[in-house]
């Protein structure tokens, strides 16, 4: 059987928020290492990759590798029934066709369980090559969400240009042009508030705002976000999930044709 108990249930609620705008359904692949999910969005433009390590759970048991196809809309409805303070347990019998979510209130005076049917999803797993990125930018996640929201008013694409001085986000369209420049933080006193750039070579790439905005639904998971860029390879937008894992979004740059 499979059983994973997460003391900080709110993390799973936030993970749902990070996934459900882009994905309708996905397979949750469970092994003794933890839970992994990888899926392309409905238009097959972007890719989402989630990893939750077994060690991050209060209790984790996976007798046999298990892939649980879930409708994320339904799963989101069930997770909305959990309070932020609840302990959440996911469990399933081996080769079961349902999964059960158990929500325990902190003082155990209220225990809820919800059983959901599983789906048969065709397993398509993409190989993601190890890449040494030209630029890696770490910035406050709320800052990145604000930039994406503000600039997407100007155009459907955003140019992200990175040099060793800083990073510039630009968008242009019918109403005009917007530019936001973030300087590399001089002193890094508060880690999560800092803008830290590691640059092998300057890069300037164009991305579709609508996907970037969907990625920022993960903002509540982490105070900072990391953007990794190289010419002609997909951008990686990564949000760490406490000490248990991460969610990564991949999006190809737009190219002048």
């Amino acid at each position: 059987m499979f059983e994973a108990r997460l003391l900080q249930g709110s993390l799973l609620k936030k993970v749902m928020e990070a996934l459900k705008e882009l994905l309708n359904e996905a397979a949750w692949d469970c092994s003794d290492a933890g839970i992994q999910l990888q899926a392309m969005d409905n238009s097959h433009v972007s890719l989402v990759s989630l990893n939750l390590r077994a060690e991050g759970f209060d209790k984790y048991r996976c007798d046999r590798n298990l892939s649980m196809g879930m409708n994320l809309g339904s799963m989101s409805k069930i997770l909305k029934c959990a309070s932020n303070e609840d302990i959440i347990t996911i469990k399933a019998q081996d080769n079961a066709d349902t999964v059960t979510f158990v929500f325990e209130s902190p003082d155990q005076d209220k225990v809820s369980d919800y059983e959901m049917k599983l789906m048969n999803l065709d397993q398509e797993h993409l190989g993601i090559p190890e890449t040494d990125y030209a630029c890696t930018i770490r910035l406050p996640s709320s800052e990145f969400a604000r930039i994406c929201r503000d600039l997407s008013q100007f155009g459907e694409s955003m140019v992200i240009s990175c040099t060793k001085e800083g990073v510039r986000f630009s968008a242009t369209g019918d109403i005009g042009t917007g530019n936001i420049k973030l300087a590399q933080s001089a002193k890094v006193d508060k880690e999560e508030e800092a803008v830290v750039i590691e640059m092998q070579e300057p890069v300037s790439l164009t991305f579709a705002c609508r996907y970037l905005n969907s990625f920022t639904k993960a903002t509540s998971l982490s105070k900072s976000v990391q953007l990794s860029m190289s010419p002609e390879v997909p951008l990686v937008v990564e949000y760490k999930i406490e000490d248990i894992g991460h969610v990564r979004y991949y999006l190809a740059p737009k190219i002048e044709d």
Binding site: M40, S43, H44, V45, S46, L47, E124, H125, L126, G127, I128, P129, S157, T206, A208, V233, P234, Y250, L251, A252, P253, K254, I255, E256, D257
Partner: peptide, 14 residues
Amino acid sequence: TVAQMGILAFFTQD
């Protein structure tokens, strides 16, 4: 115009 490539142009099926 700018073209949006899909992710499958970069990552191959395992």
